[in-house]
Amino acid sequence: MKEIEVEGKTVEEAIQKALTELKAKQDDVEVKIIDEGKAGLFGLMGGAPARVKVIMKETEEIKAGGGELAIKAREIVNNILTKMEIDGDTCIEHKPEHIVISIESLDSALLIGKKGQTLEALQYIVNLMANRMIKAGLVKDVAIEDKYKIVVDTEGYRGRREEALIKLALSRAEKVRLSGAKDVLEPMSAHDRRIVHLALKETTGVRTESEGEGAFRRIVIIPD
């Protein structure tokens, strides 16, 4: 089990530091406060730092959601990176619906590619390979009939992309609402379209639809 001790000006700050270091969420950890710390005079003198111990919980998902699969997936990503001659560190993050293999690398821009297409390709290949290994019985603790999704991310790209998409969606929707004319967005992947649909679900005055086929499928924002 992973645990670390961290100091900070306040207890909250120390916990935040620890979470960043462990790449974990508050829910994934148990926090023990060793010292609450003291604020010094004007925050300068005589203060004592707060100390906390943060322990990673062994969550249910880790046990049920294919711990061995996550290790296998990480191994696949590492093997591919080595053969691509890209230096990178990988780590596993467990989410309720999927496993995230996160890559830290100086070449992350190269790994992401134009509009994230290289990262998509890597993720696609990793999922294909992992599924073949499950079928071949090479991964033991997962059932063949279950579908597991492995997400490959680098330097927080997927989160940033999602934020950018939501921003774009909201600003284009605002224009549609003001002008009353429908707006056609550029073609996007199913995953990206889903983000836009969800982002505008609650927005009043507009609704969204998808049109076009295959790689040309795109979202239209329509005044309501």
Partner: peptide
């Protein structure tokens, strides 16, 4: 399907090639 797998492999090769 629709060349998706070979396209993905080519993208990875492209990225590795770009570095070299």
């Amino acid at each position: 399907k629709q060349g998706r797998i070979v396209k993905a492999i080519r993208l990875l090769l492209g990225a590795a090639g770009a570095k070299a």
